[in-house]
């Protein structure tokens, strides 16, 4: 059983994508924790570590991703966690590449099929636990 957290850092309230992905992952048989909007990196990381989730998904559309996502990755590291992280939102290609270089498993743009996300999430989790 995969346990996944879908988190929304930053101040934007566009949670359609986050909710759709959360539902799709549930329907793919996962246990999904959705944090709600406007979460600080500290709240997200502490929740993910306390819940001991297998993987963390981050949804952001405000444009603050280059500030917030590296901060989340740093905080996870400082708490000794190596859980995989994936990102969804409107992320320009060059930023997506930078985020992947920092350790983000995948960046999904608008229109990414949820079935594909679910498949890949399974793979990321398998990969990280071996």
């Amino acid at each position: 059983m995969i346990k996944v957290m879908i988190a929304k850092p930053g101040l934007d309230g566009h949670d359609r994508g986050a909710k759709v992905v959360a539902r799709a992952l549930r329907d793919a048989g996962m246990e999904v924790i959705y944090t709600g909007i406007r979460q600080t990196p500290e709240q997200i990381v502490q929740s993910a570590v306390d819940e001991d989730v297998d993987i963390l998904g981050i949804s952001i559309l405000s444009g603050a991703h280059m500030k917030l996502i590296p901060r989340i990755l740093d905080l996870l590291k400082s708490k000794g966690s190596n859980m995989p992280v994936f990102v969804g939102g409107i992320i320009p290609k060059e930023d997506a590449e930078k985020l992947k270089a920092l350790g983000v498993a995948e960046v999904y743009g608008p229109g990414a099929p949820t079935s594909e996300i679910a498949e890949q999430v399974k793979r990321f989790v398998e990969h990280s636990s071996t």
Partner: peptide, 22 residues
């Protein structure tokens, strides 16, 4: 921008990364 819309000043910790973005 979102801090203005949600009533946070630019120097508020909540505003990190959001100033002037949307």
């Amino acid at each position: 921008d979102l801090p203005t819309q949600i009533g946070y000043d630019s120097d508020d910790p909540h505003s990190l990364g959001e100033i002037g973005k949307v």
